[in-house]
Amino acid sequence: MIEALYKIIEMILFPGFAFIGVLSLLYEWIDRKFYARLQNRIGPLYAGPHGILQPLADFIKLLSKEDIIPEGADKFLFTLTPILFFAINLLLTLFLPICGTTGVISFTGDLIFFVALLTIISILVYTAGMASTNRFATIGAERAVLQLIGYEIPFMLSIVSVAISSRSLTIKNIVESQSSIWHILGPNFLAFIIFAITAQAELERIPFDIPEAEQEIVAGWLVEYSGKKLALFRLGKDVETLLLCGLGATLFLGGPLGPVVPGLEIVFYTLYFIIKSIIVLLVLTTLRALFARLRVDQMLVLSWKYLIPLSLISVLIVRVVF
């Protein structure tokens, strides 16, 4: 009984949904502020100290806006997709080892489940675009799937090389195998670079914000969404950012591990996890500031000509070393 109650608290409060929600809004703020500072701008400023509440303010504003379903849209799918999008992202965060070496959910081989659900998120983007039947949204949805063909394989292979070097497909074991040396410091450095680039594509950020390319197809697959549904998508995107930064920290930077004071393990583990995932976030933000957007065919060329061979080499190196 107590065990079940504890599990529920873990899921809802810490390190579950409430904590994740706050953290993901914080990460959006860090992303925006850092991006702005790289460009010599201010960034969010007014809501809260240094604009730290701006993502929350945006979210609340979107919730209060009118929610329109276009006449030609598939109403069921149109309504279902944002909910699923948000829910799957939130579910996946439960796998992240935030305050210990295991996440809230953990079982043998959970990395495969994790990666499979990540792919479903991209499929949901396609559904969202197609359900709204707008021309821009349709083009955006097509681009999302095309892009998926490009980045999915190197993304998986970069994870595979980590899995090989720790000889396990369980997140818990991967974390524990890094207690002496982080993966990024070993032969997996190449895999980390590929992971960072493909994470940009997964998150649809510059240079791979092709499906929602603001300048070309307005907002791509998001164009018809408004009000609460858009708010869910936005929050879902934030959670996805946290998810991928957390995954990067877990796989390459040793997750929550580090020197701790006995008795305060939870606090220290959480702190380490947050710091490490913020480092990954800053790397991703830097990538975002450095490039122009690629065209979708160029993106495919990039990933099949360079990323996939590179990730295969990375797997090979790791296989030889370990």
């Binding site: 460009q39 701008r41 914000d209 603001e214 300048q215 122009a292």
Partner: peptide, 11 residues
């Protein structure tokens, strides 16, 4: 800006 290079645009 039109090719999505926001940083260059700002500079």
């Amino acid at each position: 800006h039109q090719i999505g290079f926001e940083t260059l645009f700002m500079y």
